[in-house]
């Protein structure tokens, strides 16, 4: 049993390595064909224009942009494996530091959006799937359809318009108030800055979870075992608690962990709208500024987290579902 588990963990780790390797190669390849020249983007068109060709050549050499893409990639990869993520071109600081800082900002935002959308989505899905075609189902389905066809950044902008501009209940952007020393920023400040982006993210995240839960719940309610439960005199309420939630919880939980990627994807847009200095916004800035080390760093971390989410989903399924547990034992 222990050896089996070890092999399984080893396999997962190997898969993650392959995935991360492939992702870094892809990102690097895309960046090297990107029309944005890191020199122009960072030094500036005018500054570059006023330099002599020799000076530009020197700068090129210093930045290493004259080297072929492959050797640049190998140099980056070699450093990365040794734990050095390089220095950001834009911020002139170690990439590791920047990512850690942005990650801390993002983790609360995405985490709360993730939990909220999961819990609310699950609840709405159960409510809707309990009786297909009922009032609750129509309302929830309508909401989900509407939200699913609305881009996250648009919702973010609408929230911003209503709550920050018109009502002025919440700050308009950023993670902390402007003009306040870092030591004086309170937790309340941070939370109030997080509310709108988290709301925008979870509002869009709900629809996916809710629709999947609804579908599964509807299947359960039409299943033979629910029919039998009814024939045995169980009340609707008991059926939902004893059979419905029991059978829906597992797929919902798996979906919830697999949906981390969507939260990440959404956060890129939402953080942009709120100028929230998180990982998503960093990725955009790094991409537009052709900041290769920073973008590579963000990509690797993001991919690792998403992979981790999917792996957790797999593990949970194996641990909780008795059918899976037994299958593993047998094989």
């Amino acid at each position: 049993m222990a050896a089996e588990r070890g092999i399984w963990i080893g396999k997962q780790l190997f898969r993650m390595m392959v995935l991360l390797g492939a992702v870094t190669v892809a990102v690097f390849a895309l960046l090297s064909v990107s029309p944005i020249d890191p020199l122009t983007a960072n030094v500036g068109q005018t500054a570059l224009g006023s330099m002599s060709p020799e000076q530009v050549e020197k700068l090129r050499e210093y930045w290493g942009t004259d080297q072929p893409a492959l050797s640049r990639f190998l140099a980056w990869a070699g450093d990365f494996i040794r734990g050095d993520m390089g220095t950001s071109l834009l911020y002139r600081r170690p990439v590791k530091e920047i990512i850690w800082e942005r990650f801390l900002n993002s983790v609360w935002l995405m985490g709360s959006a993730w939990v909220l959308s999961g819990v609310i989505g699950f609840g709405l899905g159960i409510l809707a799937g309990r009786k297909q075609g009922g009032v609750a189902d129509r309302l929830v389905t309508g909401y989900c359809m509407l939200i699913a066809s609305t881009p996250a950044f648009w919702i973010a902008m609408i929230l911003l318009l209503i709550f920050a501009v018109h009502l002025q209940w919440l700050p308009i952007g950023l993670a902390v108030p402007i003009g306040v020393a870092a030591e004086q920023v309170t937790a309340a400040d941070r939370i109030s800055h997080m509310v709108l982006p988290a709301a925008a993210l979870s509002l869009t995240g709900i629809s996916n979870i809710a629709m999947h839960t609804r579908q599964k719940m509807a299947e359960v309610m039409e299943s033979d075992y629910v029919l039998f439960a009814r024939a045995r005199g169980e009340t609707e309420r008991s059926i939902i608690w004893r059979h419905g939630i029991r059978n829906v919880a597992l797929p919902a939980l798996t979906l919830q962990f697999a949906s981390i990627s969507e939260i990440f994807g959404g956060s890129v847009l939402v953080e942009q709208v709120f100028s929230y200095p998180g990982l998503g916004q960093t990725a955009v800035t790094a991409g537009l500024g052709s900041d290769v080390p920073l973008l590579m760093g963000v990509t690797v971390i993001t991919a690792a987290i998403v992979f981790g989410g999917n792996a957790v989903a797999n593990i949970l399924y194996g641990l909780v579902d008795p059918r899976m547990k037994n299958r593993r034992k047998k094989s």
Partner: peptide, 23 residues
């Protein structure tokens, strides 16, 4: 029948699909 089913009147269904797979 709502009062009686599962008490005085019982159904014996045909297959394993009538049992909750996770209970």
């Amino acid at each position: 029948i709502r009062q009686l089913r599962g008490k005085e009147i019982v159904l014996v269904p045909q297959s394993v699909s009538y049992l909750d797979p996770l209970m």
